[in-house]
C-alpha cells in the first residue's frame, strides 16, 4: 500500500454507497468500473492511476452486492462491440426500476397495519429488512394517525436455521444441513434448493427441492441440527407460488390426521386443546384434534402428563408412552429404577 493512502481521511461507508447510487442513477449509458473507481466519491480518493487497484475493485464488488440487497436494481451492460470483456462492462441503475411506482400509496389504516407487520419481526431474522421497509414507507410521506392498538405482536424465528435459509432463498443458493427425521436414529446430510419458508401452526417449515432424492420435500426447521452451509452459484428456478403450495400441503395433512384424546375436565390440557382450530369436545370428555406431525403432537401430549389419555391413533399412543418412559428413566436416580409407570 502506498503511504499516501493512509493520509487520506476515510470517507464514511454510507457516503461512498450513497455517491455510487447517485452516480449510477444519473447515467443513461452507464459507467465503466474504471470510471467509477477513478471518479466516484469514496473510491477516487483511493484510486491509483498507474497502480494496482485490486483491493478497491474487490470493495466495489462488495458494494454492488450490498446495494442490490437493498432492492436497488444495479444493472450490468455489455459493450456491443466488445462482449465478454469485463473492463468494458458498464454499470447503471435504471430509474424506472429503482423508483417505487407512482400509483402506489398507502392510507393511514394501511400504514398502521404495515407498522404492526414490521414490528412483529422486531426480534426475528427479518428485523433489519422490516426496519428498512418502514424507512422506505415513511419516505413516501404517508403519515400514520397513530391509532391506539395496544398490541405487541411478535413472530419468533427461534430456529437458528431460519437466518441462513432465508438468505439462501433470497439469493437462490443451495443449502446443506444435517436433518434428523423422526424415527431415524441419526441425522442425515441433505442438500436442497430452498423454495419457500412457511410458518404453519406456529412452526417454521422449509419447502425445498431435495437434490439427493430429486424431489421437493418439506423440512421442519427445528429438526435441522448444526450449521447450514450455503452454495455459491445461484440456481434458476421455475416460477411458482411455492409458499402457498407448501401451506396447502400442510393444511391437507392437518385435515387428514385426527387424534382422539381423553381429557380431565377443567385442567390445562382440556382448556387449551379444546380451543384449538377444528377441535371438537364430545360429552364424554374426548377431544378430536387435527394435527400435521405426530411426533410434535406426541411431545405436546406427553407434556400434559396425566391430564390426557391418548386413545388414537395407535402410533401416537405409543409415541406418547415412549416419551413418558424416557422421561421417567432419565430422571430416576440410582440403578434400582423406582419407576413403576410402565
Amino acid at each position: 500500500m502506498p503511504s499516501e493512502n493512509r493520509a487520506v481521511p476515510p470517507v464514511p461507508v454510507e457516503e461512498r454507497l450513497f455517491s455510487l447510487v447517485l452516480a449510477l442513477l444519473a447515467t443513461e449509458s452507464g459507467l465503466t468500473k474504471n470510471e467509477i473507481l477513478s471518479t466516484v466519491q469514496g473510491y477516487r480518493q483511493r484510486f491509483e492511476v498507474h497502480g494496482d487497484n485490486a483491493s478497491l475493485e474487490r470493495q466495489f464488488e462488495r458494494d454492488k452486492d450490498d446495494i442490490r440487497e437493498l432492492g436497488v436494481p444495479l444493472e450490468t451492460l455489455e459493450a456491443p462491440g466488445d462482449p465478454g470483456n469485463n473492463q468494458s462492462l458498464r454499470y447503471r441503475i435504471p430509474r424506472a426500476a429503482y423508483e417505487l411506482p407512482a400509483d402506489i400509496s398507502f392510507s393511514p389504516e394501511e400504514i398502521t397495519l404495515l407498522n404492526l407487520a414490521a414490528m412483529a419481526w422486531r426480534e426475528g431474522s427479518l428485523s433489519r429488512e422490516s426496519r428498512r421497509a418502514l424507512l422506505k414507507l415513511r419516505s413516501i410521506g404517508a403519515d400514520t394517525t397513530e391509532p391506539v392498538l395496544g398490541y405487541a405482536p411478535r413472530i419468533r424465528t427461534r430456529d437458528a436455521a431460519f437466518g441462513p435459509l432465508s438468505d439462501a432463498l433470497a439469493r437462490g443458493l443451495t443449502a446443506t444441513f444435517l436433518y434428523l427425521k423422526p424415527g431415524s436414529a441419526a441425522a442425515r446430510l441433505r442438500t436442497v434448493r430452498p423454495l419457500a419458508l412457511v410458518q404453519h401452526q406456529g412452526r417454521w417449515h422449509l419447502k425445498a427441492f431435495d437434490q439427493g432424492v430429486g424431489e421437493p420435500r418439506t423440512f421442519l426447521l427445528s429438526r435441522i441440527s448444526g450449521a447450514v452451509k450455503l452454495g455459491r452459484q445461484p440456481l434458476e428456478l421455475a416460477p411458482g407460488d411455492y409458499a402457498a403450495e407448501a401451506l396447502a400441503e400442510l393444511d391437507a395433512l392437518w385435515e387428514a390426521n385426527v387424534a382422539e384424546i381423553e381429557v380431565v375436565p377443567g385442567m390445562d390440557a382440556a382448556v387449551r386443546l379444546s380451543r384449538r382450530r377444528g377441535a371438537t369436545l364430545s360429552t364424554d370428555g374426548v377431544i378430536s384434534l387435527h394435527f400435521t406431525d405426530a411426533a410434535l403432537l406426541a411431545d405436546e401430549l406427553a407434556g400434559f402428563g396425566p391430564e390426557v389419555l391418548v386413545r388414537s391413533p395407535e402410533h401416537l399412543v405409543e409415541a406418547v408412552k415412549a416419551r413418558l418412559r424416557l422421561a421417567v428413566d432419565a430422571h430416576s436416580d440410582g440403578s434400582g429404577g423406582d419407576s413403576d409407570g410402565s
Binding site: 432492492g71 423508483e99 417505487l100 428498512r132 422506505k136
Partner: peptide, 29 residues
C-alpha cells in the same frame, strides 16, 4: 441531483412485511 422518488422494496423487505400481514390477519380489528 439524480434522486427524486422513493426506492422500491427489496424482495426480502417486501416478503417480511407480507408475512407479517399474513400473521396479523387473525387480529379482531
Amino acid at each position: 441531483v439524480a434522486l427524486d422518488d422513493s426506492p422500491r422494496f427489496s424482495a426480502r423487505e417486501a416478503a417480511a412485511l407480507i408475512a407479517g400481514l399474513q400473521y396479523l390477519q387473525a387480529l379482531p380489528e
